[in-house]
């Protein structure tokens, strides 16, 4: 097993009166794509938001590169090298694509080479550069959201269901982009319900249910073991359109 980049130990998160995460232990190894599977309501989004500091863990610790980030405010966590692509994409629709990208480069001006690479990865970014982000289609917004996350080199990117509600062609493009991202030294923690996508890009996999991690292992192992899939299928893999 490679050295861990991010480690959650016994993390509990409450939202109002609800106890969502009930002791999550999760290890994200350095490099590659880790996939987090689980049915709706299992706590996947909450896990990502807790890592990002958008919701406070009430118990447990989150270590990133050995540093305790559990209590850090969100901007500090971001500056430590973690980017976040939320489920609703978090696009600033009032701003142009260019302005969205400018803001995403929080530590300095846009790097032209990196931008060129991103524009090749996601051609719509080039096409709609000057357009208002609000006029983009759902898939284009998703691309913009991922593009924002990688405009500066990051150590870890949290991506929440990037294929949700997207057409198969765009899912393909997205999955290609993730595969290309894997080649850089960026680690990805991906929440995904689409198993074919998840198994295509994932290296390791964790399955969540009811606020716990119920399975953790290599993706190849899960993909090759029909019975294990079936056992976890009921938990994690709802019929995806």
């Amino acid at each position: 097993m490679k050295e861990p980049l991010l480690t959650l130990s016994g993390v509990h998160t409450h939202i109002g009166p609800y106890h969502i995460l009930q002791g999550v232990d999760l290890v994200v190894p350095k490099g590659g794509v880790s996939v987090l599977l689980g049915r709706n309501g299992a706590g996947k989004t909450t896990t990502l938001r807790t890592i990002m500091g958008l919701w406070q863990a009430s118990e447990g610790t989150i270590l990133f590169e050995g540093q305790d980030i559990t209590k850090l405010p969100t901007p500090e966590i971001s500056r430590a090298g973690i980017a976040f692509v939320p489920e609703d994409m978090g696009i600033f629709t009032d701003l142009t694509v260019a302005e969205n990208m400018t803001l995403a480069a929080a530590r300095g001006p846009l790097d032209p080479d990196r931008l060129e690479w991103i524009k090749t990865l996601f051609p719509p970014i080039r096409t709609f550069w000057e357009s208002s982000a609000g006029t983009l289609s759902g898939g284009q917004k998703q691309m913009l959201s991922v593009a924002r996350a990688i405009i500066e080199p990051r150590k870890l990117i949290l991506i929440d269901e990037p294929t949700k509600g997207l057409a198969p062609a765009i899912i393909k493009a997205m999955s290609d982009a993730l595969l290309e991202l894997k080649e850089t030294d960026t680690t990805i923690l991906l929440v995904e319900q689409n198993f074919s996508m998840a198994s295509a890009v994932g290296d390791t996999v964790s399955v969540m249910d009811d606020g716990h991690i119920v399975h953790a292992g290599e993706m190849a192992e899960l993909a090759g073991d029909a019975r294990m899939q079936e056992r976890l299928m009921g938990l994690s893999l709802e019929a995806h359109q």
Binding site: L54, P75, S78, P86, L103, A106, R107
Partner: peptide, 8 residues
């Protein structure tokens, strides 16, 4: 929230 997540 997203502005914070971008590091501001």
């Amino acid at each position: 929230e997203m502005v914070e997540a971008l590091g501001y």
